[in-house]
Simulated assay, not measured.
Amino acid sequence: MQLLIKTFHGLEGVLAEELKGLGASDVKELKRAVSCTGDKELMYKANLHLRTALRVLVPIANFTATSEDELYNEIKKLDWSEYMSTKSTFAIDAVAFSEIFKHSKFLALKTKDAIVDQFRDKTGIRPSVKVEDPDLQINVHVAKDQFTISLDSSGESLHRRGYRDPNHKAPLNEVLAAGMLKIAKWHKEIPLIDPMCGTGTILMEAAMMACNMPPAFKRKKIGFMNWADFDKILWNKIYTEAENQIHFPRVKIVGGDNNPQAVDIAKKTSLDFRLNRMISIVRSDMKEHMPHAPRGMMITNPPYGERLKKDDLNGFYKSIGSHLKKNYHNWQAWMITSNTEALKHVGLRPQHKHTLFNGPLECKFVGYDMFEGEMKEFKQKVNRSRKTAQN
């Protein structure tokens, strides 16, 4: 079985490693996606375990089309009775990168027409379109004149773990937060702080990673459960194995925010997932939040000046840099922002740089290795330590 797993730009390498860990074969990094081969068990595991995946697609056809008639005919050639019946509901998600086919809604409409007409011609009855929670979600992707038709085994996007309040503004996508933790190479033995945690997305993703809780563990429904060939026995086996691997280690995950409503939401969220023993959240200003261990990692998502407005944003970023330099010796500090101008005012030279996207915003995810004194002294100290280790 060929699988195509969607993700965000910049997370392809992280997702590829996750897939290899699940036993996938022929893993290849693509643009905002990773392809691989595997069986039904891998597809089920991918939907349950992948932290940096948005959707797990199963391609069923590839073809070339240069007109709407060609598109219609190619779709109608496929035997849709293999995947659905006249009693099934379906929905179409179309993505277009083409000068010929510019409008995704038009693509979805033509695909729908071809499927419905095929059933009507054969049986006199047509299946129904249902946008919310359909029995079958179909993905149509076109690049120039090259089409890929896939079945969406995930249904609802996998970033929806079930813990975030959708009404809170300026959220950080769960998949992006998990990707940031993996890029930074955080693990449960490293104390973690997010001093601007909002409703706690980074904290929740870290705690779920630390206790080996699958990201889709709380989801009651995944797309493939509606498929005619759904193997409930296999799924229950995979889910039970994952459940038995969950444990709650001692870990230091700390968050803070100056918004009392956000802090309350974050606390409730951790309680709902039984992660409140692992996560400590307080109401505090970023500049008041001090490290709780001699060494550790800080990862945060400060205001960009986009959705959240902040007076003197450059001055705020400067205060972040001053606070880090003064109080976070021997820590590694990471932040993500789309405001590259404000980032310059942090006043520190990042040792790690990555380009990621938070929604439509191109962002820089940067890491700083914090130390006491001047950079020259720090490098000399590191070199001496290396020589001692070699001897």
Rank of each mutant, 00 (worst) to 15 (best):
Tyr368Asp: 07
Ile92Gln: 12
Ala389Trp: 11
Leu181Tyr: 01
Ser319Ile: 00
Glu29Ala: 10
Met370His: 10
Arg349Asn: 12
Gly359Leu: 02
Thr269His: 12
Asp113Asn: 05
Glu205Val: 06
Gly21Leu: 07
Lys28His: 11
Gln332Trp: 04
Leu181Glu: 04
Leu42Thr: 05
Ser280Thr: 06
Lys379Arg: 15
Ile202Ala: 05
Met290Ala: 11
Gln390Asn: 14
Ser338Gln: 00
Trp334Arg: 07
Lys76Leu: 03
Met290Pro: 12
Arg51Val: 02
Ile5Gln: 04
Gly179Cys: 12
Leu275Met: 10
Glu70Asn: 05
Lys344Asp: 15
Trp235Ser: 05
Val14Cys: 00
Lys45Met: 13
Ile100Phe: 01
Arg160Gly: 01
Asp165Val: 10
Ser98Phe: 01
Gly179Leu: 09
Thr7Gly: 04
Lys353Glu: 15
Glu132Asp: 15
Leu50Asp: 04
Ile75Arg: 02
Trp331Ala: 00
Ser154Ala: 06
Leu109Pro: 06
Gly21Val: 05
Asp257Ile: 06
Thr7Trp: 05
Ser153Ile: 00
His292Met: 11
Lys326Trp: 00
Ala210Asn: 07
Lys218Trp: 08
Gly179Asn: 06
Gln261Leu: 04
Glu306Arg: 01
Ile183Met: 03
Pro303Arg: 01
Ala61Lys: 15
Lys379Gly: 08
Ile238His: 00
Asn330Ala: 03
Ala65Pro: 11
Met225Glu: 13
Ser284Asp: 02
Gln351Lys: 01
His159Pro: 00
Met335Thr: 03
Thr37Asp: 08
Gln118Ser: 12
Pro291Gln: 07
